[in-house]
């Protein structure tokens, strides 16, 4: 299932990336990383990926949201499944004590909060990729 699937992680936290990178690579995914929003979007535009793992709080603020919004406007990137992994509530919890919302930035997206359990991460990644493939097959 995970063989040959290419994933991209855009996250500015090197330690967190190192963790999920090893989980995903052990599971057989081919993973690329970008540590800032600009490199991340450049990679999205120039290469092909099956899924994007996106952080929210990067750069000057919620730049992950800006990437997701740009993706929605791009006919090619609009279809790509996005798994948003964020520590937003922990990072700025005092400002926004509410519950995380399902953001609906693109066709298929989902929001999970850091820290992520390895099994849960792998399950969501494969489910999102499968859902995207099914949609493609239906045409």
């Amino acid at each position: 299932m995970s063989k040959g699937k290419r994933l991209l992680i855009i996250d500015d936290d090197p330690d967190f990336v190192e963790g999920i990178l090893s989980i995903l690579e052990t599971a057989g995914y081919e993973v690329e990383t970008a540590y800032n929003p600009k490199d991340g979007f450049d990679a999205l535009e120039s290469k092909q990926y099956d899924l994007l793992l996106l952080d929210i709080m990067m750069g000057r603020g919620a730049e992950g949201v800006m990437i997701a919004r740009k993706m929605r406007k791009d006919p090619k990137l609009r279809e790509m499944p996005v798994l948003i992994i964020t520590g937003i509530r922990e990072q700025i919890a005092y400002l926004f004590p509410g519950q995380p919302m399902h953001p609906h930035f693109v066709e298929v997206d989902e929001l999970v909060e850091k820290p992520v359990e390895p099994d849960f991460l792998l399950e969501r990644v494969s489910a999102l990729i499968k859902a995207a493939e099914d949609r493609k097959a239906k045409g």
Binding site: D12, E32, Y35, N36, K38, D39, M58, G59, R60, E63
Partner: peptide, 19 residues
């Protein structure tokens, strides 16, 4: 991409990766 150093982490927060 190689793991960024602390200096790169701060640069990433600045100009969203313009060096």
């Amino acid at each position: 991409m190689a793991k960024p150093s602390f200096s790169d982490e701060i640069a990433n927060l600045l100009h969203a990766g313009h060096g």
